[in-house]
Design a binder for these strands. Structure first.
Lengths: 223, 223
DNA sequence: ATTAATCTGTTGGAATTCCAACAGAAGGAG
DNA sequence: CTCCTTCTGTTGGAATTCCAACAGATTAAT
């Protein structure tokens, strides 16, 4: 497990916990590790799970199969990130998704009940862990809500402006950069890259905004 | 406060806690109540909040104003439900939304730090409350993820089939009912009601499904 | 039973997106 | 520098959605 200390230090769930304290903590949590080949299934749709996972190496995907057998990828989870935590804490009886490895992977499992329960050694990491867990799930919540707000707009133009508005607000300036290239932004907003590019040009021509690469500037609205 | 006991009993955050224990618990949490007229602002965009709210009566809206001053409603929160909890636990410095009352309302505020901290009287409700809070936020998380999966589809037909697929799976049968009428379903999927109705008819004509009102039946795929 | 209100399905034209293909720009590797 | 790859913008036609309006069906109210 020591070989993964560098990864564990970056895991949001362990934020505020010293590297030296990590290994004892993991044993207190009865964390157990597993190795998977590429394409193996970690959790099966329909399972009831009590443990969430942490990707120590490799990458896993959250996938969903529809009534007709078509599989879609809901999320990709990379090194240092959690998966399954929302399903565990929502206490659903049947997992509506499957979790599979997209590469050879090493995964750490932690039982959600161990996280809350004050342990025999009365170690006081538990409240820290709970806070971190609430933090992780809440932040995901906010970004999901935000994304839904964007994609609720009916046209590419509206989606773009909604997104750029929020980015400007976040940056606290009408001049800001975004963390996506065109293709990634189009994927994020669920629109065509080509149509989006065209719309961006149009917005530029209309004087609504300026841009260069991933640097954007929203013009002041002339009411 | 006693007059709101009936509401408090239905609040998911207090699940598993006896009615008799509620009032002492609230005082332990230093919960405080406030009254608002219709249209008043409870939280302002830009605020840093440490308290989340519970709607005791009336209704509040989570709204977001874009760069151009256009306001959109992200959510409506009705009696017995929480608001602001994701923002509180995500520990963001500036609230990206405002919370306003859409009717005259009575709101209960609870400080997130009181929820975790074991109190002087060592009351053991805290771990229950934390579990409930994790449960609430996780469930919202799952439904948001699910919704994003639906609206990620590009056409009305695909959105419908993705949604109905999941409903069928949830019901454990290809015959099931949905909790929406046509307009509500269209709003949920971010499509036109009329276009959706047309698409439903088409799917019926093609033999993909049958329906009557909010009762649906997915035909077995003939591969 | 009659009226009113709501829900649902249909349709035609306008607007928009999607798709595929191409071309210029930018950047990296050899 | 040249080649190659990736990123970005453009364009035209096909497909889809949106919008508005209307009509039948259902439900609720009087």
């Amino acid at each position: 497990m020591k070989k993964y200390l560098d990864v564990l230090k970056t895991v949001a769930l362990f934020r505020g916990i010293e590297a030296l304290e990590l290994l004892p903590l993991l044993s207190c949590l009865s964390a157990n590790r597993a190795h998977y080949e590429k394409g193996q299934t970690i959790f099966f749709s329909g399972d009831q799970i009590k443990q969430f996972g942490i990707v120590l190496s490799g990458q896993v995907q959250i996938v969903q199969d529809d009534y007709y057998g078509n599989r879609s990828i809901l999320a990709e989870v990379s090194q240092g990130h959690l998966f399954g935590e929302s399903f565990v804490y929502s206490e659903i009886k049947m997992l509506p998704v499957s979790v599979i490895t997209s590469t050879e992977s090493e995964v750490l499992f932690i039982d959600c009940r161990k996280l809350a329960a004050p342990c025999a050694k009365a170690c006081d990491f538990h409240s820290r862990l709970i806070q971190n867990m609430l933090n992780i799930i809440s932040m995901k919540n906010i970004s999901l809500t935000q994304k839904i707000e964007f994609v609720s707009k009916r046209t590419t133009r509206e989606k773009l402006l909604a997104y750029l508005s929020v980015e400007a607000k976040k940056a606290g300036s009408n001049h800001f950069s975004i963390p996506f290239n065109r293709q990634e932004l189009a994927d994020y907003l669920f629109v065509e890259r080509s149509a989006m590019s065209a719309e961006l040009s149009k917005l530029r021509d209309e004087g609504v905004l300026k841009y260069h690469k991933n640097q954007f500037e929203l013009m002041v609205p002339t009411c």
